[in-house]
């Protein structure tokens, strides 16, 4: 039951993704062609709000609802950030969806995207298989 709050947060997040048309292939095309501010506005303002929130959490040493100290995991640089980032970017422009929107598209009734999701899971699995052989 303790996971229900994450389900509800995801649900609200999914509604926002659909209502702001972030899950639209057309919006992603527009973004990469620099023909609209919409997507840049969304990602940019999300980062600004996230940044201010994290700053406030640190400033007031806010605790979680169960009283734990909030820990923000640090990300260490590796060359996968670059190589993987480029591969994801190439794929993002084709599918017009990053992982979040894939789930929202499926919920919106685009059945064929289940195949895209399975393929993305397969991609993740192949990465896990080849991980030691890939440059990082």
């Amino acid at each position: 039951m303790r996971n229900i709050k994450y389900l509800i947060t995801g649900l609200l997040f999914g509604i926002v993704l659909v209502k702001s048309e972030v899950i639209s292939w057309f919006r992603i095309q527009e973004m990469f062609r620099l023909q609209s501010f919409h997507m840049y506005g969304i990602i940019g303002s999300a980062i600004v709000v996230g940044m201010i929130s994290v700053w406030l959490i640190k400033r007031f040493q806010a605790k979680t609802i169960s009283g734990e100290t909030i820990i923000i995991p640090t990300k260490k640089f590796h060359w996968g950030n670059v190589y993987g980032g480029l591969i994801f970017g190439l794929g993002w422009a084709i599918t017009g969806a990053c992982p979040g929107p894939l789930f929202a598209q499926i919920g919106s009734g685009f059945g064929v995207i289940i195949i895209t999701l399975i393929s993305a899971i397969a991609g993740t699995w192949i990465y896990g298989l080849l991980r030691d052989k890939l440059p990082h």
Binding site: G84, I87, F88, A97, P99, T116, S119, I121, G123, Y127
Partner: peptide
């Protein structure tokens, strides 16, 4: 496209 998204991310 889906494969590249999963592998790349």
């Amino acid at each position: 496209g889906g494969f590249m998204v999963g592998f790349g991310t």
